[in-house]
């Protein structure tokens, strides 16, 4: 169901941008297609394996442990554990998000999961090592990561507060 909603949203935005390109700069059509094809070549061979890995890892995770460490009742400690797990989680979104549903099914609380996704999106080890470090240097990368340390906990904490303020 959510897949259909996401698809419709993306296609609508796509139509808007394609219309803008048609009016302002028709050569953008070709550039957009080439860029998309380049990204697709990277993603296509990995996607099936990533989805299989996430599904299997999710089933292998013992629900008792997930629930005890990151369950809804664990509060701040769950958020902290999830932040650490997110920060060291390797792989791109095709592993992280399927794994997130697996954790949700295994009993992780939404605030812990939000901390995990935030930490993963800010640190993403592979991305940092392959792109940020070579392009922007050690100082920039180091200070950026240092500045980001409190953010997953803030996001998880805010989510917890929002959930208590308006449950459900």
């Amino acid at each position: 169901m959510s897949f259909a909603i996401a698809f419709v949203l993306v296609v609508l935005l796509l139509l808007v941008l394609a219309a803008v390109a048609a009016r302002r700069r028709p050569s953008a059509h070709r550039e957009a297609r080439d860029a998309a094809r380049g990204h697709l070549r990277n993603i296509a061979p990995r996607l099936p394996f990533a989805l299989v890995a996430a599904e299997c890892i999710g089933r292998l995770l013992p629900p008792e442990i997930v629930g005890a460490w990151m369950g809804s009742g664990t509060g701040l400690s769950g958020v902290l554990i999830a932040s650490v797990v997110g920060a060291i989680l390797p792989g791109g979104p095709m592993l992280a998000f399927p794994l997130a549903i697996a954790l949700l099914r295994a009993g992780a609380g939404p605030e812990a999961l939000i901390a995990l996704i935030t930490a993963w999106s800010l640190v993403a080890i592979n991305r940092t090592l392959l792109f940020e470090l070579p392009l922007l240097g050690t100082r920039f990368t180091g200070y950026r990561l240092a500045v980001c340390i409190p953010l997953p906990v803030i996001a998880g904490g805010c989510a917890g507060l929002l959930l208590t303020a308006a449950p459900g």
């Binding site: 953008a28 860029a35 989805l51 599904e55």
Partner: peptide, 28 residues
């Protein structure tokens, strides 16, 4: 594997459309 396959079928159209969307943003 069956569940992973269903997920693959569901997410593929979204990815294709979103990659093209990203391409347009990049170009414009």
């Amino acid at each position: 594997l069956g569940d992973a396959g269903i997920l693959l079928l569901l997410v593929t159209p979204v990815i294709l459309a979103a990659l093209l969307l990203g391409g347009y943003v990049q170009a414009l």
